[in-house]
Computed example of a mutant assay.
Amino acid sequence: MSISLSQFITENGLEPKLLSATQTEGFVTAMAAAPHLIDPSEWLAFMWGGEEEAPFGSHEQLEQYANIIVEMWNEQRGALLSNEWQWPEACALSESEIVNDATREYCEGMLQGWTLCRDDWETLMPEDSQENALLGGVLLSISLLFDPESALAVMEEQGAAELAQFEEVFNGMPVMLCGLTMRAMQMVEAQ
């Protein structure tokens, strides 16, 4: 029986030492969507703030954590490339706060992950390319969902503030993110 990431973090008292399970899942999703595969050994330390020393009590604990992350990456990559990725169950819209905390955390993790593979994206889909609009749309959507209050304030200044737009962005994210990942894979394979 495999243990969930949140269960692993809680059972080992690692809450203050690691990204939350939701942030981690967002980060791993960004890495799974990346155009070029990046070995998890190159980015795993970001889960504990990039510190040289991992916060685990034993090598076995680190290995168990790494296995959970790699399994999550495999699941996310498969879902993205088969056009089946969906928001985690905990992520949702909120009438009072536009999006719930889980959605914010997930988007925060995704944005952190994107920064690691940003150069790959910018090289593959440069600013003047047609694909850059797709990349920009995905990044803008993630940013809007991470900080909807600021986005709403800017939209109000421009006379276009409607909460329905956030629902469209949230509901459109699976199609956009899968499309971006699949297009990037096609472009990498064609190189």
Rank of each mutant, 00 (worst) to 15 (best):
W114V: 01
D119T: 12
Q61I: 12
E42L: 09
G159T: 09
D39F: 09
S96I: 09
W48Y: 12
Q7P: 06
L81I: 08
T24A: 05
H59K: 15
I9C: 04
K17C: 09
F56A: 01
W114G: 00
I69T: 05
E95S: 03
S6Y: 08
A45R: 15
E63F: 13
Q130E: 15
P16V: 06
E162S: 10
A160S: 10
E25V: 02
F146T: 01
F27L: 04
A153S: 11
S96A: 10
E157V: 06
Q112G: 02
E122M: 11
T181W: 04
W73N: 00
E15N: 08
D147L: 08
I9W: 08
A21W: 04
A92S: 14
L18S: 02
C91F: 05
E42D: 13
Q64N: 14
W114M: 05
N83E: 14
M176G: 01
E42F: 10
S58A: 07
Q112K: 14
F8V: 03
S82V: 06
I3S: 05
E127T: 11
T123G: 03
N74C: 01
A54K: 12
F146H: 11
F8D: 03
I98G: 01
P16Y: 08
L80D: 00
N12Y: 13
E25K: 01
M182P: 02
A32E: 07
L37S: 09
F170E: 01
L145K: 02
Q186P: 06
R77E: 03
V99L: 03
M125L: 12
Y65T: 00
A30S: 12
P174S: 01
C91V: 05
A151W: 15
L44C: 07
G13Y: 15
T123E: 14
L180N: 01
W85P: 00
V70P: 03
E157S: 07
L144A: 08
